[in-house]
Amino acid sequence: MIEGYIPYIFAISLFVLGLGTIVMKNNLIKILIGLDIMESAVHLFLISLGYRTGGTAPIWTGITGEKIFVLPIPQALTLTAIVIGLATLAMALSITVQVYRHYGTLDIREIRRLRG
């Protein structure tokens, strides 16, 4: 009974781990890693939604005669989300480079000149 839920439990704990990293760490790079862990948890969650025991990749070749496929839509969604995650991460790292050039540190407690 519990076996079927293991991927979900794992994904949710990864998600919480990522969220905790964002909230508790002070280094900007670590915060971005936390963000990525959170995203990966959602990807894992999506993928496990479409999994079928014994299923193969959902590509119809007509040669091997596979009968059971895993659901392709969550895979397509995950791929899209991965691409978006890549774009966000690239943006984040580029801005982080600029932050380091301006502040000389990646500690978010010191990156606080904006007030009010």
């Binding site: 890549l86 690239a90 790292l93 580029s94 050039r101």
Partner: peptide, 15 residues
Amino acid sequence: GVAVLVIIMSIGMYY
């Protein structure tokens, strides 16, 4: 896109 991205980000290496 990815190639440009990495090249631009590696300017940091140079600096």
